[in-house]
Design a protein around this nucleic acid. Structure first.
Lengths: 221, 221
DNA sequence: TTTCAAATGTAACAAATGTGACAAGTTTTT
DNA sequence: AAAAACTTGTCACATTTGTTACATTTGAAA
């Protein structure tokens, strides 16, 4: 179902009438893609803002052999590549593929600049989006800085637990393996090791943190 | 020596008179810190723009054990934490310490917003800064995506060669080891392996690319 | 030039992770 | 409820990387 623009990070805080008036002042496109379509290629020029208003997509980084390191799934409502429009090298850093049928609202860069000048709320929203994107990447990078897999997994569990001692994993081991850039059995081994050490109890997706202190320590190994 | 604001990424494209006029319209602080002073603590609220106009600082992230993972040194002119003023988590992610006596120009967030609205060049500069930060992080992430060390090293050599077949390395193996997050002898082994395969010739810092085609292929392993 | 600290080459062994495979469990679909 | 598809547990073995150590070479300082 198509998302109302009022619920997007770019337009939040504005009502539908205000948005309509603003959009009537610029030139933009609505565009649809079928499931599994390649929407944007890594390296393609990033000269427009892409607002995902229906469906979900995945962004993945490919090496020259076509092997992919999955970065993230994205659901509507969501703005793609907001951080790459104004940089020096204005190219998309990832391939973007449709996971479902999707609809986009596409605003060319010059029109986006005009739009940001038209309205203060929009400007603050956009600054917030770009900043949050940089923060997200920074966090990903921090994750890669953990040397051993056990520390990555421990950190992941801390994040996912949300202060609860018992919870269900959102991702399969396959997804985690792709996320961490390791082989799937390695994920299983890391879980098993934390269990053998009596730090967590894990049975399929159900996790219980037994010793949070030592789980925190495991992040620093 | 104090840096002219015209040479900062925020004010570039404006002349001194224009900058003076703009700054006269907002409230801001000039602030100095002595060498080795802790300027900002990790977790502190990031509610102002900090423009380093003289000296150099280091940013370091601490883990829960208080062990520091060095992130980067920063020299004037430089804007600190531009991505954290408008993001969701508005706290500094690192400790910032003065490496020399330093001078800052500090602009509170509301004043920064007013400033960005006052001038289109400033707005584009600021958007460019945050975007470039995201690109930098994205590039770092791409580097981590290479699975085997040989591929990282091959990629590094391609980057460093700048299309020359013979060149000198800018970094020591120790630095490369830190950059790639591996042990130092592993770097040596990767170089040696590329040499054994007659893809490069390397003798200390002097590198000659023998077979560029296969070096490119080595990026995909 | 001589001296010395740092960088590099290299080796042996330990540890972590990858690969491929298959059985067993779980969830979704029919 | 039964079947199919997916997920997880687990194994043996290959490969990569880490660790430690020491000799050699280089480049900078005295």
């Amino acid at each position: 179902m198509e998302i109302k623009l009022t619920s997007t990070s770019l337009f939040k805080g504005l009502n539908e009438d205000e948005i309509d008036i603003l959009l009537s002042k610029i030139t933009f496109q609505r565009k649809q893609f079928l499931k599994n379509t390649l929407i944007v290629s890594q390296g393609e020029n990033c000269d427009r803002l892409m607002l995902l208003i229906e469906g979900s997509v995945k962004g993945e980084m490919m090496n020259q052999a076509g092997k992919s390191l999955k970065i993230e799934d994205m659901d509507a409502p969501r703005v793609l590549a907001s951080a790459f429009i104004f940089g020096k090298r204005t190219v998309f850093p990832v391939n973007i593929t449709a996971l479902t049928d999707v609809k986009f609202l596409i605003i060319p860069k010059p029109e986006l600049l005009r739009l940001l000048r038209l309205n203060d709320v929009l400007l603050q929203n956009f600054l917030g989006m770009v900043s949050s994107r940089a923060q997200f990447l920074s966090e990903k990078l921090r994750f890669h800085s953990f040397k051993v897999l056990r520390a990555k997994v421990a950190n992941y569990l801390i994040d996912e637990s949300q202060q609860q001692s018992s919870f269900k994993l959102k991702h399969s081991q396959n997804e985690l393996a792709e996320l961490f850039g390791v082989a799937r059995p390695s994920i299983g081994r890391a879980f098993l090791q934390l269990q053998d050490d009596k730090i967590i109890d894990i049975r399929y997706k159900q996790v219980t943190i037994i010793d949070k202190q030592r789980l925190l320590e495991a992040c620093n190994e």
